[in-house]
Write a protein that binds this DNA or RNA. Sequence first.
DNA 1: GCGCTATCTTAGCGTTGTTCAAATAAGAAA
DNA 2: TTTCTTATTTGAACAACGCTAAGATAGCGC
Lengths: 207, 207
Amino acid sequence: MRESEVPESRPYHHGDLRRALVEAACRLLEKEGAQALSLRAVAREAGVSPAAPYHHFKDKSELLDAVAHEGWEKLDLAFQAARDAHTSPPDRVRELGVAYVCFASQHPDLYRVMYDCSRDKADMPAHVLENEESAYRRVREVLISAGADPSDEIGLELATIACWCAAHGLAEMTSFKQFEPLKEALGGEEAFLRGVLAHVGVFAKGL
Amino acid sequence: MRESEVPESRPYHHGDLRRALVEAACRLLEKEGAQALSLRAVAREAGVSPAAPYHHFKDKSELLDAVAHEGWEKLDLAFQAARDAHTSPPDRVRELGVAYVCFASQHPDLYRVMYDCSRDKADMPAHVLENEESAYRRVREVLISAGADPSDEIGLELATIACWCAAHGLAEMTSFKQFEPLKEALGGEEAFLRGVLAHVGVFAKGL
DNA sequence: GCGCTATCTTAGCGTTGTTCAAATAAGAAA
DNA sequence: TTTCTTATTTGAACAACGCTAAGATAGCGC
């Protein structure tokens, strides 16, 4: 093994190309936007041939899946911060929603990749649904602590889904030009988000 | 002119190629899905050369805009039907939401094109916002007739936006696999939709 | 008849996703 | 050590894409 760990001329075998590709994709996503995120561009950004990624990902969508997974983990961090920043359960519900939409607003291209992956597979992201520590569970638990009846399994699930729908819808619409004046009138985007979410039952009063 | 060079059904100059292209695109969208909707495929479906569309649309996105416009008009018809099918204002609010999501559920690829166009331009579709007879206005008016204070301009707008967000979010998520069991438990997709929307304040009680 | 202009086609450029055989490096076996 | 084996990476190639340019065609006014 050469001592030059990160030399100018990369060694023939990349240390962890899979990881490097995902990072290159994220970098490209912030720099050039979702439209510029081609497999070849990612390979270029990682300094590797166009065919190299195929030894680590079956196809382009699998690379995007990995990027999306990274995104959901980042979102999860934002969720934890929002939860820990408030003690009152109703506040927590609302602020979880605000944190969700703010994340999407700050990383619009990443969020787009994240949801495109979910939609293409008609699948809630695994990290969101299956994991014990998932964001979905987190919303559910905050709803319970805010007064939702834990024995009403169906009602609880419907409420949780309603949260997701409102948050996702708002996340995709908050950047629309037509809302600019309203945001200004309310004194910023966050006030706007809270204003909208206040009309969603589960966000307004924790069920 | 060689008359049998080209099928007799179409002379060298197409009657209304612009229209034919939009229709071909819609046909292709239902038949093959959004992924297969390339400009060249649309030209092929319309029986025309790959370069022909460029005399009627600046680029591909402009063709998609036309397709999306068609979509919003179709949705508007569904809206009118839902509105006319109910007299009670609260029912109307809820059923507008159900009609919206059902439309998206029945034409998923068209709906995707519709919203992708809006998002790319950070623009609520013109047909939705600017027109007097627009769907946006329609929601707004039903909210007023359901008891919303018409003098509270900001509150009214926030409520209308909340409606759109919940409906759009649900429209994009209702096809997720994970919701199948819940739909069955509730006896169908429409019941599921009503169940979710019931947790959105504006849909639940007309503000 | 004449020309003008909009429309449509053919040909071609650069890019993309993907495959495949060949080249290379790293590790195990000898 | 040398050799064999396997995992990576490359270069070349293919089909399809969006788009442009230059030429062919047809309808319309003169």
